[in-house]
Simulated scan of single mutants.
Amino acid sequence: MGFNGIRPNATRKEVLEMIAVIMRDDNDLEFKLDSMNLSLSISVVTEIFWVLNWERLSALRFFAWIRSSKCRRFDFEGAKKMLDEMRQMGCDPIVDTDNYLLSSLCRSDKTDESCQLLEEMQERNCLPNPLTFEILIYHLCRLGKFDLVHEFLDRMISNGLEPRLTTDAAFIKGYFNSLRYEEAHKYVVDSSV
């Protein structure tokens, strides 16, 4: 066994078995993939995507599993590297993929990396959606970094995005948790105008 119980370097037979499991598309696909305990190199992941594409089968659940398994192991560099490799192969992940990585970074208190990911998204023309900003705003409110929170709110609004109700709730909760009741009240009053 390798790191965290994951066997390194999947064999050819294991890769073919994994492809067969994915092609069956069972309800418990993710559980079956997890139970295989394999570490997949980017070249193996690419090969699996190629086979699924050749067979004209959806790779969405496999992709979601790869993404979540990397983030569950806190292998953010590995997840980012995999996404970059996919982009080079012409498979651009959608904003939801970046949001998942962003959320995982925030839960691990990697604020600088989260902000950097947002910048990279915009450079790639992967336009953030209201949830993207909410993830950052919620995280920064939890940390009490209201100067950055307001900066992201301003960027969100300047991008023509309207804050979700849960974004407003994150602001209010953040202010209350920081015992900043007057600012919470001001935010509510300003938001209702």
Results as ranks from 00 to 15, higher is better:
2 G>S: 10
3 F>W: 12
6 I>L: 10
8 P>E: 03
12 R>P: 11
14 E>A: 13
16 L>N: 14
18 M>K: 06
18 M>R: 09
22 I>W: 03
30 E>A: 03
36 M>G: 12
36 M>T: 08
37 N>Y: 12
39 S>L: 10
39 S>V: 05
42 I>D: 04
44 V>G: 01
45 V>W: 00
46 T>W: 05
48 I>P: 03
49 F>R: 14
50 W>T: 10
50 W>R: 14
53 N>A: 11
55 E>I: 10
58 S>L: 05
59 A>F: 06
60 L>I: 05
62 F>Y: 05
62 F>M: 00
67 R>I: 11
68 S>Q: 11
69 S>F: 00
73 R>N: 15
75 D>F: 02
80 K>T: 15
82 M>C: 06
86 M>D: 07
90 G>W: 07
91 C>D: 07
94 I>K: 12
96 D>F: 15
100 Y>T: 13
100 Y>C: 08
102 L>F: 02
107 R>S: 14
117 L>K: 03
117 L>D: 05
120 E>A: 08
120 E>R: 11
124 R>D: 07
125 N>M: 10
127 L>K: 04
129 N>I: 06
138 Y>P: 01
141 C>M: 03
145 K>G: 08
146 F>M: 07
148 L>H: 05
151 E>W: 06
159 N>Y: 04
166 T>Q: 00
166 T>M: 02
172 I>M: 01
185 H>M: 13
188 V>D: 01
193 V>W: 12
